[in-house]
C-alpha cells in the first residue's frame, strides 16, 4: 500500500491547512523512507509469498516498522515539525507518521514486530488484508476517494475566481496521481 498513505495525507491537509502538503506527504511515508536505506544495506528484507505482486510480500522491517520504532520516528518528526508549525502542527505530523503503521497493521501479513529487531520475540502483528486483495484494494479505494474529495473541496473553497484554475489543477493532479499510484501498485508496475 502506498496510495492509501498518500490519500490519508491529502485528507489531513483539508483539516490542517496550515501544515504544508509536502510535509504531510513526506510524513505519511516516513517509515518507508527510513526502510529504503535499511533495505538497501540488507538490515531489513522482503520475501515474496504467493507469487509476489500486490501485497505479496513478507516485509521484515524489524526496525523501521516495529511498533516502538514507528512511535519513536513519529515522536522525532513531531518534535521537529513543532519548531516550524507550532504544537498543533507537531501533533498533526506525528499522527500522520504513525498512521502509516496503523494502515500497515491492517494490510500486512503478521510481520510487524512490537520492539525493534523483534526483541524478545514477541508475537508479530498484522491483520493480513493483503491475503484478500479485493479487501485491501477496497480499503485503498475508499481512502483515495475520501482523500481526493476532501482535498479538492478544501483547495477550491475560499479561492478567488482568478485562482480557480490553479486550485482545480492542484486538486486534479493529486487525484490523478492517487489513482495512478493505486493502479501501478496493483498491477505491479515497478
Amino acid at each position: 500500500m502506498f496510495a492509501g498513505h498518500f490519500a490519508l495525507a491529502a485528507a489531513v491537509k483539508a483539516k490542517a491547512p496550515k501544515v504544508p502538503l509536502w510535509a504531510l506527504m513526506l510524513s505519511t511515508q516516513l517509515l518507508d523512507v527510513v526502510f529504503v536505506p535499511l533495505y538497501l544495506s540488507g538490515v531489513e528484507t522482503m520475501e515474496s509469498v504467493e507469487g509476489g505482486g500486490y501485497g505479496g510480500n513478507l516485509i521484515h522491517a524489524d526496525y523501521s516498522h516495529s511498533l516502538a520504532g514507528a512511535l519513536a520516528i513519529a515522536l522525532i518528526a513531531g518534535l521537529l515539525a513543532r519548531r516550524f508549525w507550532g504544537m498543533r502542527g507537531g501533533i498533526v505530523i506525528a499522527s500522520v507518521v504513525f498512521s502509516h503503521w496503523l494502515l500497515d497493521l491492517m494490510v500486512h501479513r503478521a510481520d510487524l514486530p512490537i520492539l525493534p529487531g523483534n526483541l524478545g520475540h514477541l508475537p508479530l502483528l498484522g491483520l493480513g488484508w493483503w491475503k484478500v486483495p479485493a479487501v485491501s484494494i477496497g480499503l485503498e479505494s475508499v481512502l483515495i476517494t475520501a482523500g481526493f474529495v476532501l482535498y479538492f473541496r478544501s483547495v477550491i473553497s475560499g479561492t478567488a475566481r482568478k485562482s480557480k484554475v490553479l486550485a482545480v489543477t492542484a486538486g486534479g493532479v493529486l487525484g490523478i496521481l492517487l489513482l495512478l499510484a493505486l493502479v501501478t501498485d496493483v498491477l505491479g508496475v515497478a
Partner: peptide, 30 residues
C-alpha cells in the same frame, strides 16, 4: 522505484501546486 517516483511526485509536484494555492489565498484572493 515506483515508491520513490510517487514520493517525489506527491511531495514536490503536489506540494508545489498546493503551496501556490495557499499563497494565492493568503494574497487576498478570497
Amino acid at each position: 522505484m515506483n515508491f520513490l517516483l510517487f514520493l517525489i511526485l506527491f511531495t514536490a509536484g503536489c506540494g508545489f501546486l498546493d503551496a501556490k494555492v495557499d499563497s494565492a489565498k493568503r494574497k487576498g484572493g478570497r
